[in-house]
């Protein structure tokens, strides 16, 4: 994935600009920056859910798996049914390996409504494995996970990288991925128009 001179906006207001980086197979990149700097906005833009204000993102088609704050789980479906649905949508059959990897075997028949917050999160992350996609975009993946699960997830990510995948994640917690690069977003914060930043159409109207 190659990102060149990207600018993203939230609610019509530019938040990040001039961002360029490159994510190669087998590499992980961790996004850092204070709350509100635009980590979620950046991830959503890269996932194709919102248009970029400027710049270019080049990725192979259909290679991105996005995991947001919300896990997209249905409370009245069982753990296995939830995973099978996403596997079918993505045309893969890796449900068993995903259950195994995120230690969900024993919970497979349980309704998602009866899972704890951490178990739900693990199921949400297991979904990444059944997408069969190479580039993972993760937004705070470790929220509500205990120390053991964080380590488990760290090893899942490492296995994904070793298999030629890549990951871009916004997180404050150390996943134990020593090889991961860190990208601090603070220097790319969009400047206000007064300071020479991007000028919106409506600023110009009152020049």
């Amino acid at each position: 994935m190659i990102v060149e001179d990207l600018a993203v906006a939230r609610g019509g207001v530019p938040v990040l600009e001039g961002l360029s980086f490159r994510l190669v197979a087998g590499a992980a990149l961790i996004l850092r920056g204070p709350n509100g700097v635009g980590k979620t906005t950046l991830l959503r833009t890269l996932a194709g859910l919102q248009p970029a204000l400027a710049g270019r993102v080049s990725v192979p088609a259909e290679s991105i798996a996005y995991a947001a704050h919300a896990d997209g789980l249905k409370a009245v479906l069982t753990v296995e049914e939830n995973l099978r649905f996403w596997a079918a949508i993505h045309g893969t059959g890796a449900v068993e390996t995903a259950l195994e990897a995120m230690d969900l075997r024993g919970l497979r028949g349980r309704m998602a409504a009866n899972l704890s917050a951490g178990q739900k999160r693990r199921l949400g992350l297991a979904r990444l494995l059944v997408t069969g996609r190479a580039i993972w975009l993760l937004d705070e993946p470790t929220v509500s996970l205990d120390a053991g699960s964080v380590a488990l997830f760290g090893s899942v990510v490492r296995a994904h990288l070793a298999a030629g995948g890549a990951a871009l994640m916004a997180t404050h917690i150390d996943l134990g991925l020593a090889e991961a690069g860190v990208l601090d977003l603070s220097p790319y914060r969009a400047k206000a128009p007064a300071a020479g930043g991007r000028i919106g159409q409506f600023d110009e109207a009152f020049g």
Partner: peptide, 8 residues
């Protein structure tokens, strides 16, 4: 325009 200014 006012909304844009307030948001900024």
């Amino acid at each position: 325009r006012l909304q844009a200014l307030l948001a900024r």
